[in-house]
Amino acid sequence: MAEDVKPTRKNLMEIEDRIELSERGHDTLEQKRDGLIMEFMDILDQAQDVRAGLNEDYERAQRTINMARAMEGDVAVRGAAAALKEHPEITTQSKNIMGVVVPQIESSRVKKSLDQRGYGLLGTSARIDEAAEAYEQLLESIILAAEVETAMKKMLEEIETTKRRVNALEFKVLPDLYDNKEYIEQKLEEQEREEIFRLKKIKAKKEEEEKEQEEAEKAAAKEPETVVADD
């Protein structure tokens, strides 16, 4: 690439400007990357807690529904499940962490009281209620986990792109620019040396010519008649 640029002073100045800009960008991006990783570590701790809670809730929910199935029969459980009228809803808002937009999920109508569930109280037993409650609890954990894990995914994506940019600047853009700068500087110095050499040559030639002329004049002064006769 170094040979692609024209070795002119203007290009050199342009490249110096670009180097300055790239270095500033590189520093800023590096800081951004480190900041993002620090934020990510915070979220990671949170995510691990949420995950642990989620697994616990899942196991409990499974236990209670298996109990309900065993005691009431599969059909009763499914029947109750099909009767649900209230449905949980989630609304997402966004929050900005260092330029990364992460969602904040809010849920409504996850936890329901007995009469809100919609299956008849007489036809079902307390075990089904328990199972429903356990799953409602599980859903809440899932919503929390979804929020944290989406934030993590988004942060990871941003970290990856930032890292790539930092590396591209550090290992590709800046070295190329430095190569070009070096190349132009060398070329310009070379041109300067050539110029000086050329000037010296011209000076030497001029002096020689002057000498010759002087000699010719001297010779002409010695025998002016010959010159006139020549004319």
Binding site: I65, V77, A82, L84, H87, P88, K112, I128, Y135, E136
Partner: peptide
């Protein structure tokens, strides 16, 4: 899925 339907997932 049954358990989630019990919690109201549609």
């Amino acid at each position: 899925t049954t358990g989630f339907r019990l919690a109201g997932v549609r």
